Simulated scan of single mutants.
Amino acid sequence: MEKPSKRELFLLYLKGVAMGAADIVPGVSGGTIAFITGIYQTLVGSIGAIGPKTVQTLFRDGPVAAWHSFNGNFLFVLMAGILTSVFTLSKLISYLLTEQAVLLWSFFFGLILISAVHVGRHITEWRVPEVLTLAGGALLAFGITTIAPTEIALNPITLFLSGSIAICAMVLPGISGSFILLLLGMYAHIIGAVKALDVVSLGIFASGCLVGLLLFTRLLSWLLTQFHNLTLALLTGFMIGSLNKVWPWKQTLSTRINSHGEAVPMDQANVLPDQFLMVTGQDPHLVYSLFLMAAAIALVLVVERLGGSKS
């Protein structure tokens, strides 16, 4: 295996930054970014390679061989980019979700829409099973986006389990780990821990993420190898179904009080831009929103053109 150049490592780091930024937003998956930037199967395969054989290689051939056995350099650089985003952009993303939600969601709506097309194009043969799998994935993701958030008790066990569940969603294009945390009522806790650098809470959550990641990616890697078209059809369906969550114009039907005593949306309905103005009294920013959707689509097409789409 050729040693990657500094330029390749820097580009990989930037892909990690983009994945981290996406993972912060409830409704957008870092797995989507991994797919459109051409590193998805490498990512899944590298994580899936970590297991008992890694330990055997460690004791038999040493730490360097063990590190290379699961593509350690790739994962290290990518994770560095992800963590950079999480710790530097969480405040910015939180601000945009509050102050410029329509524009932020517009960009990600365009991104996920073209990403669904992008993933679907990798399916080499469309048959009845692929069509049914796509439809099933879309219905499942749509159903998840309609579930009202809840609030579970905050303790080490729930933190660990939340990490285990959310990380599986973060790996899947179209299923947002942040949104799963939102459904569990853990999103504000995790973002708060990141902002406050609560090492204990973040350590427990990260442990759950690690366990869930190692178990789930092995299954996903096997599915991509044995049932490539069906798996991609399912992932495409996930993306299509998740568009319901990232539709920019929403009417809040009911709110709830979170653990910080703040009123946050609980039940929302998608509305058209002109209805958004009538029911909320807020500017739908239609021109800017359409521009950002188009910009997101153009961005993915440019990434494809540059040859980064060999996922």
Rank of each mutant, 00 (worst) to 15 (best):
D198Q: 05
V200P: 02
Y95C: 01
A166S: 15
D267G: 00
A21W: 06
F10Y: 11
F70V: 02
L111R: 06
A298M: 12
V302M: 11
K245S: 05
M266H: 10
L182T: 11
L89S: 01
A169F: 10
L272K: 03
I240F: 06
L286V: 15
S162A: 13
V200N: 14
G72M: 07
I144P: 03
G48P: 01
Q251V: 02
V119I: 15
H68V: 01
K3I: 10
G81S: 01
L232V: 07
E304S: 12
L299P: 04
K15C: 11
G137M: 00
I114K: 07
S221V: 01
V287Y: 10
I175S: 10
A18C: 13
R256N: 02
A153F: 01
A295F: 11
V200Q: 15
L223F: 13
W126I: 13
G136W: 04
H189P: 10
I165A: 12
I36E: 14
R127S: 11
S289Y: 06
P173S: 14
T217F: 07
S311E: 15
L96K: 03
G81C: 02
A49R: 14
L104G: 05
P63R: 02
Q56A: 10
S85A: 12
S178Q: 00
A169D: 12
L213S: 07
P129Q: 08
S162W: 08
R121G: 03
L306H: 03
G208N: 09
G308Y: 13
I297V: 13
P129I: 10
L183T: 11
Q100R: 15
A141E: 04
L184N: 12
L223K: 09
F160M: 14
A135I: 15
T88V: 02
F70D: 05
K245L: 11
A138D: 08
T145V: 05
T236S: 14
L181S: 10
E262V: 05
A65P: 00
V264S: 07
H68G: 06
F109D: 04
F74T: 04
I93L: 07
G30I: 08
L181A: 11
P129V: 12
M239P: 05
T37K: 02
I167D: 12
I33S: 02
G308R: 09
L12N: 04
I82D: 07
Y95L: 13
L89C: 06
H228V: 02
L182Q: 07
F108M: 03
G261Y: 00
V300Q: 06
R127W: 01
T280E: 10
G163K: 03
M266S: 13
I147A: 07
L220T: 05
G261I: 00
L232W: 03
I36T: 14
Q56L: 13
L243G: 04
R60I: 14
V64W: 12
S259C: 05
V246F: 04
L301K: 12
G208K: 08
R305K: 15
E125A: 13
G308K: 08
G72V: 02
L234Y: 01
D23C: 04
D274G: 00
L306I: 12
E130R: 03
R218L: 04
L161F: 15
L286I: 15
G48E: 03
I33R: 03
K3A: 12
F87S: 00
G174I: 14
I165L: 14
K310D: 12
V17T: 12
V171H: 07
T57W: 08
G307W: 10
